[in-house]
């Protein structure tokens, strides 16, 4: 019975795959050329990298809601009742500790570089946050501790919300300045995007870190 069910599943998924390939090959009509639209409006976006301009300016609503998801996920994970808190286990591995001593400061530097370079090249808050969270994980694995002791989960909450709060604040500020929500005035767009991305880097790194079991 199970064998039949498995064969049915494999056959069904093969059909689905072939149908998807057929659909992908036979997409009708030219897609609207959004790359041209983006490069046309790039001058007033405040940044010179098209992907950053789309993420933080033209489609900032998407990113705002994405940041909200990144806030909700660690909060829900923290709300799960755990039977025992995960004990911090330092490995005492000299190789890992030597690696952490070199790699963590470099990762911090790289995160700042990625944050600042996002305006003109590939980079930005999400990349920087991933590197930062990776440095925290390495520190935790090598030494058994990462965040300072006074930064308890309760005290982390303002930092976790910082990115989304800054994003909303800048959105409303641009509304007050005569534009619309998240429609930054071109003269201020560069500064506003940097402020948002700086907050996002800290909040997203903390969110990623807290999602690590």
């Amino acid at each position: 019975m199970r064998v039949v069910a498995h064969r049915l599943i494999v056959a069904g998924c093969t059909v689905v795959g072939l149908a998807l390939v057929y659909a992908v090959v036979n997409v009708q009509g030219p897609a609207p050329d959004l790359a041209l639209a983006v490069s046309g409006a790039l001058a007033e976006s405040g940044v010179s990298h098209p992907v950053t301009a789309v993420l933080l300016n033209f489609r900032a609503y998407d990113t705002l809601l994405e940041v909200a998801v990144m806030l909700v996920a660690p909060l829900v994970a923290a709300a799960l009742p755990t039977t025992a808190p995960a004990p911090a286990k330092p490995t005492n591995d000299p190789v890992l500790q030597a690696l952490a001593a070199v790699a963590v400061p470099l990762a911090l530097l790289l995160a700042i570089y990625l944050l600042l370079i996002g305006a003109s090249r590939s980079g930005g808050a999400f990349h920087a946050a991933a590197v930062l969270a990776g440095a925290l994980v390495l520190l935790q694995l090598a030494t058994g501790r990462s965040l300072p002791a006074w930064l308890t989960p309760t005290r982390q909450q303002p930092l976790l919300i910082l990115g989304l709060a800054l994003f909303c604040a800048v959105g409303w500020l641009s509304l007050l300045l005569g534009g619309y929500f998240l429609g930054y005035p071109p003269a201020w767009a560069g500064v506003m995007i940097l402020v948002i991305e700086s907050g996002l880097t800290l909040s997203l790194a903390l969110a990623l870190w807290r999602l690590m079991p």
Partner: peptide, 15 residues
Amino acid sequence: ADPVAQALILTGIVV
């Protein structure tokens, strides 16, 4: 590549 598609995919990866 299309920057809008890249940004959408980056959003998708994070989610």
